[in-house]
Structures are given as C-alpha cells and as structure tokens.
Design a protein around this nucleic acid. Structure first.
Lengths: 372, 372
DNA sequence: CCAACTTCCTTCGAAATCGAAGATATGGCG
DNA sequence: CGCCATATCTTCGATTTCGAAGGAAGTTGG
C-alpha cells in the first residue's frame, strides 16, 4: 500500500489509532487529509467503520477497524522439535494457532517445504474464502542476518549455516517474507503488549537462553546477533566448557538444557523444560535450587545490561518462565546490584503475550513489509 | 525553522547533504521541491552556494553550505576541575575553543553563572558582529534527566542533586538550552566522525569511566543513566568497596582516579590522568601494568555489551585514551571473548573527534533543538 | 573531438496536503 | 432543559509537493 494510505493503514493495524482524529494526531497529517484517505480506504474495502468509540469529552469518534477481508498472514515459530504455526489477520489477531512436531535436524530444505505445506494446510482449513494471503514469516532458533534473511552460524542447527531461508520460503509464496531470530520475534510481539515502554528487554528462557531488545519502540538487530546473552562468562566455582569453545558461558549453567542435564545426572528424569517447571511446582528441592541458581546467574548478567540500556521493562518468557523462582531470583539480582536510577521505574515480569508472542511479533513485523 | 525548510537546513548543517540532489535523496522530497526551498533559504541568508562539488559521473553539484552568519552556538564541557568552552557555527565547526579552570564543587549556582559569563566573554572576543547566538548547551559529569534537564543523583557533584541546570542556564539566555551527560555528548560528537556506523559505543576513560551509546544513529538516553558501565561488578581477587556501596565495581579498579590512587600509594606521584599516560609513555612498569589491567577489566565488561548490542564500532576517548596499552588490552579482551558474529566487522579504535568531541556533540544535539 | 550516458537542477501543470471555518455530536453544569 | 465547552469530522479555497519532461554540465570511451 503506497504512501499516506499505507501509513494510516499501518497505524490502525498496529492498534495505535482507532479513529480519524487519532490518525491525524499520530500521522502528522491534517485532519482533512486523513478523512479523504480513510474514505478511500473504506471504499476499497480495507477499512471498515464499526460503531462509535468512547467520548473524550466531546463528540464520540467513529471507530475504524481493519476489514477482516483485508488479508491474512501466515506465521511460524520454529523450535528444535516442534513448531507453532498460525494465521493472523492484518491487525495481528490470530485466527488459528497450532503446534505441530517438526524436526529442524531434517535440514533446511525439508523443513521449509514442510512449513510451506503446513501453511497451505492451515489456509485451506481455516482461511475465510476470498481473503488473500498477504505475507509469510517465521522465527528461527538461531542468528539471522537481517539484510539477507539467511541463517548465520547457528549453534544447534546443523546444515542450516548460511542457508537463504527467506529466499527459499519466497519461492513457495510470491509475497513479502520475514525471517527473524525467535527471541527477536518474541520481543517484537511482547512490545505490542507494553505500549508505554520505549525500551524493552525480552528474555526467552527455554532450552536455550535468548534475548530480544526493543530500543525506541523498534527491534534492535545490530548485525543479526544482537540480544545474545547466552555466551557471557559468569562467576562460578566450577569450570564448564560451552559449545562455543569458551568456559563458563551463561548458557552452560542457566539454560533449560543445562538444567535438564544436571537433573538427569541426578537420576531425575526430565525431557523438556516444561518438566523442570513441573518439578519446581511440585516442590522438588533439587529442581528449585537449580532454577533459583539459574535465575541468579541470568540476573547478574542482566545487571550489566540494565545499567547500560536503562530499559523500561524486562519481560521473561519462554518455556521455563512459569517457574516462579526463576523470575524471583532474576528480580533479586537486578534490584540488588543495579543503579537506583536504572531500577527506579523498572518493571520485571513474565510475558503478557503468552506462548504466541513470537507469532504476534512476526505479524507485527510482517505488517510493515506488507504495507510498505 | 519550520517544516521542510528546517529539515533541509538540518541535513546541510549536520553534514549529511551538500547539494540539492543529496537533499532530495535524503529528505524524501521531490527534487523540484528541494530546489524551491533551497532558493528560499538562500534568499533569507541561511544557506550559501559555494562553488562546485565533485562529480559522481555527471554534472557537478553546486555545493551548499550553511551561511557563517546563520548563527552561533555556545557550548561547554564541564569537568571536575576545568571546563572546555567553545563557540560553534550552526554546522558545528568550532570558531574558538578554550579550556578554563572551574570548580564544580562551588555548587551549581556559582558554576552556571560563571559559565554564562564565560559564554558572553567568548562572544565578545570571538563572535563576528551581527551573528546571533542561537543556542547554548553543556555537558555534565553526571546523570541528567533528558526530559527536565536536571542533574540526577550525581556521585561526585555535591549540591547538584536534582538541580534544574537547563532552567537556570535558560534564565541567562532566552534560547534553546541543552544539558546532557558528558559521555553522551562525547558519543554524539564522535558519531559525526563515524557516518557509516549506525550503532556505536563510545567509552570515556578519564578520572571516571563513562560510556555513551548511539543506536540507529541516535543517542540512546534510556532514563538518563544509559551507558553506565562504571558500577558493573568485575572478576577480581581482592575486594574493594566503591562509592556506590557495592563491592568490586569497575570504577574502583579501572578508572583514572583508581589508577592514580594506587600509583600515589606506591610513591609515584600523579595528579591527573594525563600524568598516568605520561608514565606509560616513559615506560614506567607499574603504570603500564596498571593500565593494562584496567583495559582488561573494561574489555571484559564491554564483552557482554558487544554481544548484546552488536555495535559497528567501539570508540575510546577521554584523557586516559592516549595510553596504548589501554586500548590494546580492551581489544584483546573483546576479540577473545565475544561471538565471532559480533566482532566480525567490529572496529575498536581511539577517538576521531579528539578532545573537543563533547563540544561537537553538544553542537550536533543543539542543532536539532535550534532548527526544530 | 564527438556521441552516449550520467548526474544535477529547473520548469510547469497535476495532484496531494493544509488549515481555517463550520457542521455535527456529546458530556457537563446550572 | 438549554447553554457552553469539547471533541470529531467535513467542506473548500490556498498552498505545497509531486513528477514528468527537458535543459545544463560533466564523464567516459571510442
């Protein structure tokens, strides 16, 4: 969608504006121009007028919404052993979300073909007839070069290095394609739930440890590896060598995989991070102590970053995040050691967007590409 | 300056554009509109046309510059015992820079009055007649709330806490006023010398340790304390309590003040960070070892931040920065421990803007306020 | 030196945008 | 209930911006 119309549509789709007056305020356009463009958008079936909003002391605004028929986005969040897949409308509301088993070890070709088939599947089953697919996107559990959409030096995805995921996915769908690191997508999704926060750190605590950063309301990508905290050296008595070749990386002590390793060695069988959470909830002391220690280590790393970035909030998500002691000890470490100025209004809490955060983030970022 | 004219003027003043064609490319306006506005700006005496630029394969551009008579900015960089003061034209070129002794311990009222008098002084001595002062700005060696221009919880400025510096300075000059942390100003100044870098970390190694961050080309302020690295806990054998109340802060080991303390205890008399640099250059082993250790500690902290932010460059400035072993050991630590993806194209080097970086940064930031 | 191409800048009618004024709708208050 | 204050949205003439076309000035390569 070109020019001013696209800007207006984006503001409505992103949930920033719900009326012509709000559009005028946020877009910087004159109210008269907004009315003209909105009329056109309604005429072409992309926007619909839907009832009246709440008054702010004067005439009530006529509420604008994206037409359900404006288009669909197909999004995925690829994990090591399973993928979440979903269809969203252009305003980012999920029509359907499913989790399906999927093995990225099968290699990029097979996985992407599988994903394309799954998207077609979802569309056939849940896509309203006549509503066009407008974009596809996926999260990847490894670094992605933002410029090219290639996977770069992933640590646990053999065969994927330098693979042009975006290009390959684009071969199935002649549409805007988004490929992004999973923690970054999660951050983008979470950002929509924290509208007052300009700067946000979103921690993904699952079998790995990832982090996405929102600076000034926008995802910060750096060279594609921004947000990495898993290979920071932590203060520790013992010495463990990480897969990256260095000693005492955070990941080797505090990731879900590390915790599971220790528990399994102790004869307590766990297969997924969620199992660890369950053990903690059952009050198994070994699990609780481990999680608490993981939180402390993560918190100490965050300490440095909080002083440096001064985020408005730290959001903890990922499959390990329901474990209460994790976030409690993260909080303790951060509040104890950071500068008062940095923690004064700092909120540290669990995800507001839930398990679909990454899918919502993919929708949010895709929207910009679709309405560019 | 209002609207499109302001945008164009800003692009020229900031050095981003030198011709109508470049203005058109960067501003997004049509070439014809640019020509119209530029003609107006030349008519009102703000821009001047000055010779021809270099060809890019076709007709040579007619070079545009800000008129020397467009206005002046008065800027200062306040240190503990002395201040640098300068007059800049609107494009940020210094007309004059002076360093004068000045004691911030005299309190905010006296210091700001002194600064205002010094500005008047400089104007009388070096200001071309008829050229108006358009803005004033200063750097402060402590945290500044970006919204209010107040000093917030400074560690070494007794009597300044919560003092409304911007307001007080504005009482002397009825003009746009900028008050900002000194390391942040340094970062803003350095950013102009690294035009290809979107993300930049600028370290100020002087008697204290400060850092400014440029993300996406713009200074990242956070809540006003962003960029702080001085109170990060470092890995150390001994245990030193910092003024902030915590143990083993980076500042307590690696700041110029800390180094001077150790040297003086060893009977080697030093009074300023520059003395330490001189000792290192003279090959005094105690000084070299200390500086090398400081660089290692700083580098280890930067390691975490580099993985997280993925900067394009790390710039080291401040009065300690000429000491070769400092930057050498910072480099060693960062390259050894960071992810390859993060260091692949990372440049680590000393300041390009020199000792006036903060003044130039003040000019750069002030420009936005003046042409708003 | 000339032709072909590139880039820079201007001209001028078409289109988009603005902004002041007014029409419309609502809540609050005496 | 009626009036005022406030906010939303539209109308319409004035202004700004666009963009296609063309002229001006250089470079490149035979």
């Amino acid at each position: 969608m070109r020019g001013a119309q696209g800007d207006l549509l984006r503001l409505v789709a992103a949930g920033h504006a719900e009326s012509r007056a709000e559009l005028a305020r946020l877009s910087g356009l004159a109210a008269s121009s907004v009315s003209l463009r909105v009329e056109e958008l309604i005429g072409s079936g992309l926007l619909v007028e839907e009832g009246a909003g709440t008054s702010r002391g004067g005439r009530r605004p006529r509420r604008l919404r994206l037409s359900p028929g404006a288009g669909l986005l197909a999004v995925a969040d690829l994990g090591a052993h399973h993928a979440r897949l979903g269809l969203l409308d252009l305003s980012g509301t999920p029509l359907v979300v499913e989790e399906r088993p999927c093995d990225i070890l099968a290699g990029p070709d097979a996985t992407i073909d599988w994903m394309a088939a799954a998207f077609e599947d979802l569309l056939a089953a849940h896509g309203p007839p006549g509503v066009p697919l407008r974009g596809v996107g996926t999260g990847i559990p490894g670094p992605v070069d933002p410029a090219t959409g290639r996977v770069v030096a992933p640590s646990r995805m053999p065969g994927w290095n330098n693979f042009p995921v975006a290009e390959r996915l684009g071969a199935h769908f002649d549409l805007p394609v988004l490929v992004e690191n999973d923690a970054n997508l999660m951050a983008a999704g979470e950002a929509r739930s924290w509208p007052k926060c300009e700067t946000l750190m979103v921690l993904k605590a699952g079998s790995g440890i990832g982090c996405g950063v929102i600076v000034n309301g926008a995802l910060h990508r750096g060279r594609g590896a921004a947000g990495d905290i898993s290979h920071v050296r932590v203060r520790s008595d013992s010495s463990v060598t990480c897969s990256c070749g260095h000693d005492d990386c955070l990941e080797a002590y505090a990731s879900g995989a590390a915790l599971m390793g220790v528990l399994n060695e102790q004869g307590i069988e766990v297969r997924r991070p969620a199992d660890v959470v369950a053990l903690v909830e059952d009050g198994v002391p070994e699990a609780t102590a481990l999680v608490r220690n993981a939180g402390r280590l993560i918190g100490e790393v965050l300490t440095v970053l909080v002083n440096f970035i001064n985020p408005d909030a730290i959001v903890v998500g990922g499959s390990l995040s329901p474990a209460e002691p994790l976030i409690a000890s993260i909080r303790a470490a951060v509040y104890e050691r950071c500068l008062p100025l940095a923690t004064r209004d700092l909120e540290i809490s669990t995800t507001r967007s839930g398990p679909d955060a990454a899918l919502l983030g993919a929708g949010s970022l895709l929207l910009d590409a679709v309405l560019a």
